[in-house]
Amino acid sequence: MADLGRYLYAISRGLAESQVASMTGLRDAPLEVVRHRELGAVVSNVELTEFGEEGLRRNLEDLRWLEEVARKHDDVVHAVAALGPTAPLRLATICTDDDAVRRRLDESYAALVSVLDRVEGRLEWSVKLIVPATVRASSPAQSSDSTESGAAYLMRKKREDHERASRSAHVAALAGSVHGQLSEASVASRRLPAQDARLTGFEGDMVLNGAYLVEADDATQFEARVSALQSEHPDCQVSVSGPWPPYSFAMLEQ
């Protein structure tokens, strides 16, 4: 019989096992709830050949595996978050058995309660700001010609450097301003690393990758605020996604 582990998806408050009884997780294993005080870890069995340290090391290099598992993990988080306040866990949090799960819940009890208080009744929105790529590219028309002297070349480089720096400052201020305005319209906010265009397909430079925690009831207002920002900056692309479970405001350093 294969060695099994408990894969943890998220931690909820006040969740009854019956609420997840009809749901399945990875590899169609049934979802279960491991309780500790009022907290419940949503788990399912996984085989350690696939999800143990060796297995993970191998599988995390396989993008198809990674995407499949990430999507399933996200499906479970979505379903559970719809039932009550939920703190999502990172991918591949595995415990050997239920006692180990309960130990983790106990060790992180205070932090978990604090996180659940923070996210209850609130949802995450992702807002990204993408500026046209020309903002930081140096003009190709000014590439060196053979008659340019060494001194002139350096002076030109110096000028281009200066122009780049002032464009940078302008763009940074813009990103900061947009983030600031959206932060005011939300309960909590966070900047995430910009995503590379080669990965996302956005044309231009992502100068803001913001996550915003918004009261569920304020969703329409928040979306209106984002629309307004797009109108105020027609030359930029304001990309909004959501509402999502509060991933960026509940991640625990497990």
């Binding site: 996200d74 999502p88 991918l91 995430l192 690393p193 995503q195 990758n209 991640m251 350093e253």
Partner: peptide
């Protein structure tokens, strides 16, 4: 980004 806890 979110599940792996790191920017790519």
């Amino acid at each position: 980004d979110r599940l792996l806890g790191t920017g790519i």
